[in-house]
Design a protein around this nucleic acid. Structure first.
Ligand SMILES: NC(=O)c1ccc[n+]([C@@H]2O[C@H](COP(=O)([O-])OP(=O)(O)OC[C@H]3O[C@@H](n4cnc5c(N)ncnc54)[C@H](O)[C@@H]3O)[C@@H](O)[C@H]2O)c1
Ligand SMILES: NC(=O)c1ccc[n+]([C@@H]2O[C@H](COP(=O)([O-])OP(=O)(O)OC[C@H]3O[C@@H](n4cnc5c(N)ncnc54)[C@H](O)[C@@H]3O)[C@@H](O)[C@H]2O)c1
Lengths: 217, 217
DNA sequence: CGGCGATTGTGAATCGGATTACAATCGCCT
DNA sequence: AGGCGATTGTAATCCGATTCACAATCGCCG
């Protein structure tokens, strides 16, 4: 009893958000290495693939524990599983989608989500013509059913793909339904209360920040 | 001659990339204010809208010059025009799209690009069944015509929406065609040589970094 | 079994971006 | 004209993230 390792009872300090945002990158690279049959990888090699310094990777990982072996590197399979655990990806997540327009449809039929454990299980739209239609195996519901449906399935993640003018209003309603993570495609600086996480996807912003460097052309 | 102001001949120092990435945010907010008929805005008000400190906005702008008036704030119209100038948005940009699948089609028919001065003028796909089809007014071309077409139209911006397995290869070809800004939707850590700018759009990464905060659920 | 090259984990040093704080300036009101 | 509240622009400071640097540890080989 005296020499118990206490390995599992590590207190995780406040981890900088930038670090959390890099973890999925590490995970993805490890999955690829794993598929290629690689069993061990050093921070050096990982850094090369991801175009970052080995020290940063080691530092990032050190927030969560000790996963490597000196002189060897990291077991790809082990680190991969640990990262999944840390990120909460050892389980599957149900995702709700609001706004079944062109983008919404592309998202529903996107094959890249399910393999990562994200399942779009419900879709909502305000347009009566959309309601009742079936897209990619799921039936579009009226916004009247939003709360009911989201709460019944205990969905905590939502994707917003409605026009900018209605995005904040939709987001507010999702927050009321206890959704805790929102991926917003509308080009607005949306506001959410503290416990809720928000990420924006905005191709126009990305283009506009790149043209700065093309001014000379 | 002696007291010339030298206003226009300001040497812009190396501006941090984070600053450049915030400018389009400012611009967008100014456009909205302008549409609402607002003529003057303070960094205070701007900061409130964008959920950031007034000082940061002032600091960011100070990299490029002096645009405000003490005691008043900024002329919305003037600052808006200056930002457009700085970002290279006073002109229109031609954009090439590679990969006319589900996502590619959604992008082509997305109405949010043209108003900002980004025009998708050419689309390319490796699949012979796609080639020749017309999507949103433009005809899909074979990859054989990539260099020829891109160079002929002097296109410097491209969007990549091909499967991950082919994305790096496509990006390399675009770089060879003198494309200088690439918006990549494929989930890979793509590599480009220094003069070329790259931004990635990756909804799965965004979701995976949010679940970290949902672990308790 | 001991020495060696490789690699981790992390405190310390460094770097760069954010914030603070304030002098300078403005428009306005009386 | 002069005083006042508001606001900018920026130098100085703070703070957090990145990088450095190295002791500790590992596997391996002779
Ligand atoms: N299409 C793209 O490639 C793309 C890319 C980036 C961002 N976006 C953004 O994504 C959003 C959707 O784009 P889109 O091209 O799919 O537009 P769209 O008009 O094709 O679809 C919008 C859908 O939202 C629905 N809707 C409108 N108000 C609603 C509300 N209050 N509640 C629920 N549903 C509502 C509409 O009925 C429609 O079906 C926009 O904000 C757009 O700027 C689109
Ligand atoms: N659909 C989405 O919502 C979505 C979202 C985010 C990211 N993505 C990513 O965008 C990419 C495209 O997704 P999609 O759903 O449109 O896939 P898709 O299979 O529908 O379309 C891919 C298209 O690329 C073409 N293509 C394949 N190899 C090519 C090559 N070497 N050169 C030129 N064209 C080639 C194919 O012929 C096809 O038309 C993928 O990398 C995907 O991970 C998609």
């Amino acid at each position: 009893m005296a020499r118990e390792k206490a390995e599992r009872s590590r207190v995780i300090p406040e981890v900088p958000e930038v670090v959390v945002m890099r973890l999925p990158l590490y995970l993805r690279t490890l999955v690829q290495l794993s598929q290629r049959g690689v069993e061990v990888v050093s921070s050096q090699q990982l850094g090369q693939q991801l175009q970052m310094t080995p020290a940063q990777i080691r530092k990032d990982l050190s927030y969560f524990g000790r996963f490597g072996r000196q002189g060897r590197g990291y077991s790809v399979k082990y680190l991969l599983e640990e990262l999944r655990q840390i990120l909460g990806l050892e389980r599957e997540w149900d995702v709700g989608l609001v706004g079944v327009g062109r983008l919404g449809r592309a998202i529903i039929s996107y094959a890249g989500m399910a393999p990562e454990g994200f399942h779009i299980v419900a879709a909502f739209d305000a347009d009566p013509r959309q309601v009742g239609q079936t897209v990619g195996g799921i039936t579009v519901q009226s916004m009247d059913h939003l709360q009911e449906s989201i709460k019944a399935t205990d969905t905590r993640i939502a994707i917003v793909a409605v026009p900018a003018a209605h995005a904040q209003e939709v987001i507010d309603r999702l927050v009321e339904c206890d959704v805790r993570a929102i991926l917003n495609y509308a080009p607005i600086p949306a506001l959410v209360p503290p416990p809720v996480k928000l990420r924006n996807i905005d191709p126009v912003l990305a283009l506009q920040s790149m043209t700065y460097y093309l001014r000379s052309l």
